[in-house]
Amino acid sequence: MNKVKPTDFARSLSNYFFEYLPVQKGLSENTIKSYRDSMSVFLDYCEKERHLKREKLEIQNIDRSLVEDFLSWLEQVKNNSVATRNQRRIALNTFFKYLQYENPEYVLLCQHILSIPNKAGKKQTIRHLPIKAVEEILRQPDLKSRSGRRDFAILSLMYESAARISEIANLCIGDLHFERSGAIVHLRGKGKKFRDVPLIRDISSLLKNYLSEEKHYRPCDKMEPVFCNRDKEKLTRAGISYIFNKYIKSTRSAMPNLLPSKVYPHIFRHSRAMHWLEAGVDLQYIKDLLGHADLSTTEVYAQLNTEMKRKILEEVHPKEHQSSQYPSWTEDKNLMGWLSNFQDTH
Score class of each variant (00 low, 15 high):
Arg237Met: 13
Phe227Thr: 00
Glu278Val: 00
Asn209Pro: 04
Lys222Thr: 06
Ile200Pro: 02
Pro260Phe: 13
Glu224Trp: 01
Glu213Ser: 11
His266Tyr: 09
His216Cys: 02
His266Ser: 07
Asn257Ala: 12
Tyr285Val: 11
His270Cys: 07
Ser261Ile: 12
Arg164Phe: 15
Leu206Ala: 09
Asp175Tyr: 02
Ile168Phe: 13
Asn257Trp: 08
Val197Trp: 09
Ala169Glu: 14
Asn209Val: 03
Phe227Leu: 01
Lys215Ala: 14
Asp294Lys: 10
Thr236Cys: 11
Asn245Tyr: 04
Tyr210Glu: 06
Arg269Ile: 08
Glu224Ala: 06
Tyr242Phe: 11
Ile248Phe: 05
Pro198Gln: 10
Ala273Asp: 07
Leu187Asp: 12
Leu290Ala: 09
Tyr264Asp: 07
Leu171Gln: 06
Lys246Ser: 11
Ala162Asn: 06
Gly280Val: 07
Arg164Asn: 15
Leu259Met: 11
Arg164Leu: 15
Pro219Gln: 04
Asp196Pro: 00
Leu283Trp: 06
Tyr285Met: 07
Asp294Asn: 14
Leu187Gly: 09
His186Ser: 13
Leu289Met: 15
Met274Phe: 03
Ile165Ser: 01
Lys287Ser: 00
Asp202Trp: 01
Val226Cys: 06
Leu171Asn: 06
Leu206His: 01
Ile165His: 01
Phe227Asp: 10
Trp276Gly: 04
Ser271Thr: 12
His292Trp: 00
Asn245Phe: 00
Leu176His: 10
Leu258Gly: 14
His275Glu: 12
Asn209Glu: 14
Lys190Asn: 07
Gly291Arg: 07
